[in-house]
């Protein structure tokens, strides 16, 4: 059975001038011990989706649908029960390690705060023990528990963030652009840490990123999002070797590579639609090279084609 299952999820942000449809009818499963990548351009709703799973969205976000974690619908839980789940059953690491640690708290106090929420009677010795183990598993010296965040480099801070997220051995880890603020060498080190954790801790990872290179190295399945829709989902090899949705194809082609014989800079012309006022029909048609009449009129349904999910009129009614 899937650990995490998203069913017909809709998310709207209510703003003064109307509603922004950030996520529209998204469904997918995350299996046990699996790494699922979610990719797309800025503003495609991938971070909103990730944040919604932990129910950390702002007040003006309206969520409908189901988010099932081990069969329990998280959207129906009250705040107190949700608090008990966050950090313990499901955890998240954020993009910017500079702003996601409290600058006036020692690293160990970040851990202690987390542990006390889930177990008010926990002893200090035990807390230090768990925290040290977590830090060790991401390659940080446990002696540094007494340091403040500013005493760490960016890469080390991101390691601390990961250690905090996995300290209570969650089943699912949501990583929202975990390496975007870091440079290549540190990024590589952090990816190694995540890969190791996946092997040793029996944990599923939902990796949200715009970097198709990272997904290729980390994920087993990939979900491609465009303007709030899930447009394609499939196994990594199949999707990269033979993308089905025109957007996936363009996205793959527009990645800068390091092959010297390929000097053609490709990009997707145009820009993503305004989600306050999206186009009728398929949201991608204004940028799509294969647009037909039907694309402008009706939104395509999500179809299952050869063990893949794709949302495009090319693949029939």
């Amino acid at each position: 059975m899937a650990v995490l299952s998203i069913k017909n999820l809709f998310i709207e942000y209510q703003i003064k001038s109307g509603a922004v449809k950030a996520v529209e009818d998204v469904s997918f499963d995350v299996e046990e011990n699996e790494s699922l990548g979610i990719v797309g351009e800025s503003g495609c709703g991938k971070s909103t989706l990730g944040t919604a799973i932990l129910r950390l969205l702002p007040q003006n976000a309206k969520i409908t649908g189901e988010i099932l974690l081990n069969g329990v619908n998280l959207l129906e839980l009250d705040n107190e029960s949700m608090r008990k789940i966050r950090g313990k059953d499901i955890a998240m690491i954020f993009q910017d390690p500079m702003t996601s640690l409290n600058p006036i708290m020692r690293v160990r106090d970040h851990f202690f705060e987390l542990f006390k929420v889930h177990n008010p009677d926990i002893k200090k010795n035990e807390m230090i023990k768990i925290a040290s183990e977590a830090l060790e598993s991401v390659g940080v010296d446990p002696k540094r528990l007494n340091n403040y965040p500013f005493e760490f480099s960016g890469g080390m801070r991101q390691r601390v963030m990961i250690a905090l997220a996995i300290a209570l051995k969650p089943k699912v880890l949501i990583a929202d652009e975990p390496t975007t603020a870091l440079d290549v060498v540190v990024q590589e080190q952090i990816m190694q840490v995540l890969k190791n954790l996946m092997k040793t801790k029996n944990m599923s990872i939902v990796l949200i990123t715009h970097d198709m290179g990272i997904v290729a190295e980390m994920a087993e399945r990939v979900a491609v999002m465009y303007a709030g829709n899930l447009v394609e989902l499939g196994a990594i090899h199949k999707l990269y070797n033979k993308p089905m949705h025109p957007y996936t194809r363009m996205l793959l082609e527009s990645i800068p590579n390091i092959k010297l014989d390929d000097m053609d800079l490709k990009f997707i012309p145009g820009s993503p639609p305004d989600l306050k006022n999206p186009p009728r029909g398929c949201k991608y048609y204004p940028r799509c090279p294969f647009t037909k009449d039907i694309c402008k009129k009706n939104d395509p349904k999500t179809k299952k084609v050869d063990s893949r999910i794709v949302k495009c009129w090319i693949y029939g009614e």
């Binding site: 480099s153 890469g155 080390m156 290549v184 060498v185 540190v186 990024q187 590589e188 080190q189 990816m191 190694q192 970097d211 198709m212 290179g213 990272i214 997904v215 290729a216 190295e217 990594i236 090899h237 990269y240 070797n241 793959l252 990645i255 590579n257 390091i258």
Partner: peptide, 25 residues
């Protein structure tokens, strides 16, 4: 060499031996 090998390659079929530096700058 390390910088070059750290670039993620957007192709799941390619598996490379990565050269990693020790520690941090």
């Amino acid at each position: 060499k390390i910088l070059m090998s750290a670039i993620p390659i957007p192709d799941p079929n390619v598996k490379r031996e990565k050269l990693m530096p020790k520690g941090e700058i």
